[in-house]
Structures are given as C-alpha cells and as structure tokens.
C-alpha cells in the first residue's frame, strides 16, 4: 500500500477552460451544489476550479485558463496548524483530510496559499431527485468540517483492490482509466495526467524528467513558498508571450 508518491501534471497549454473537470469532480465527490449566494459569500466549494485570466485589450484579447486543485504539498502549510492532526501527509504522498477527526477550526484553510480547502458552513443539501446519485464510496461531509481534493482516493483504493484480485499492479496501463481521478477522466484535451512519481517508469515521471530540464516547461505553483507541491504545471506555449510584458 505504501511507497507511492501520487501526483499530477497539468499541461496548461492544452486547457481550454471547459470546466468538465469541475463538473466531474462535483459529481464524483458528493460536493454540494453551489448556488449564486454561495459564490457571493465566497463560500462555494470547488475542489478543482478553472481560473480564467484575460490578457491584452480588445480586440487582441486572449483568455488564459489554469485548473487549480489541492497541490498535495510535500511540506504542506495546512498540516502543522491543525490542532487535531486531521490533515497529514500519508505514506502514499497524499495530503489527506480525515473528516471524522476534523473539529472545524479552519486554521488549515487560512494557512493554505492556494485556497483549495473548503469549509462546510452548512449541512449539504441535495434535491430529493439527486439523493440516489451520491457516490457511496465518498463520505458526505456534514456541517462544520473542512474538505478538499483527495486525488479521488476512493478510486485509488478501488483500483488497488481490482488489481490485486487480478494479481496485477494498480499502476499497470490497463487500470489507468480506473486509477485516474474523475477530473483526469473527464478532461477532453488530456490536460491532466495522474500517476506515481516514485515509479520511474510511469508516464508522469517521464514527463517530469523531460520538462524539468533547462528548456522544459515545468513549474510548480508559488514555488518561492517552498511548499514542494505534488502537482506540476507545464507552462503555456505561446509565441507571442515574450512580447507581452508579464508573459
């Protein structure tokens, strides 16, 4: 069970901002429905969000998209501030949130530089017709606890079980679709890649090695904070980027 270092590579160059990952995540992980008032109160819950930035002036305007989810930091700022150890880095390289331990201090959310931790200010509610669409493999978080992206740990667990039943390894290619988190599955342009950075033969390891070279595109978000994220971004390929002052 132990020994992996699950991580993700986000190729920003491919992202078209379609929000399919957001929808997939919402339905996979029993995230309550965000209404307009929740956004107005800054209390909407989105484990993955696509941030949009406009660049340039009309008519020469470009939209830039970047999907942002929990970075699963190696040195996570959220972990040491939790008074009850409800969040910690487990031996699979995941920054996990234990719902039944959480007492809702919200320290972790305040200490997270990426704003990817969300607090349940209300008891989550779904319309009656949607009660049977809830994913039974994921806990429905009640009011007063923190939640965040888990890299769809329920899928990792399930794939490991399926793989061990077949006498195979969960990281084998045939289980790739089942191992990948919902956002990776849903992405139409293959922006997101998921895998084990500790496995030198995995696709993400190869990409990381290739893109970390001198002329590579790899970067991590807010690198100067030293959080050592488990999510690696590949920057956009843009011929005109050099012309723009902040490109």
């Amino acid at each position: 069970m132990a020994g992996e270092n699950w991580g993700m590579i986000v190729d920003v160059d491919k992202c078209i901002g379609c929000q399919a990952c957001v929808v997939a995540c919402q339905s996979e992980n029993n995230i309550p429905i965000n209404e307009e008032k929740h956004f107005n109160e800054r209390r909407a819950i989105e484990w993955i969000r696509v941030e949009r930035y406009w660049e340039g002036e009309f008519p020469d305007v470009k939209a830039r998209f970047i999907p942002i989810m929990c970075q699963h930091c190696g040195d996570a700022p959220c972990e040491p501030v939790c008074p009850v150890f409800a969040t910690y880095r487990n031996d699979e390289g995941l920054n996990v949130q234990i719902y039944n331990r959480c007492i809702g201090t919200r320290f972790c959310s305040n200490n997270c530089p990426y704003h990817v931790r969300f607090f349940n200010f209300w008891e989550p509610e779904w319309p009656e017709s949607l009660h049977n669409q809830l994913n039974p493999d994921v806990t429905v978080r009640s009011r007063g606890i923190m939640e965040k992206c888990t890299f769809c740990i329920q899928r990792i667990r399930r794939t490991k079980r399926t793989a061990s039943r077949a006498g195979a390894d969960a990281t084998d290619e045939e289980f790739e679709r089942s191992l990948d988190p919902a956002c990776v599955n849903a992405c139409p342009t293959e922006t997101l890649y998921f895998g084990d950075f500790n496995d030198p033969e995995s696709k993400v390891s190869a990409m990381k090695e290739k893109e970390s070279k001198r002329d590579g595109r790899a970067y991590t978000m807010l690198e100067n904070l030293g959080t050592n994220p488990g999510v690696i971004y590949l920057k956009k390929i843009d011929k005109h980027a050099e012309d723009v002052a902040h490109g």
Binding site: Y88, N90, E92, V96, I98, T139
Partner: peptide
C-alpha cells in the same frame, strides 16, 4: 495498514 485513509475518505 492503520493509516487513517485506509477506511476514512
């Protein structure tokens, strides 16, 4: 395994 995420997720 006794990691919390063995059962709690």
């Amino acid at each position: 395994p006794t990691d919390c995420t063995t059962c709690h997720y």
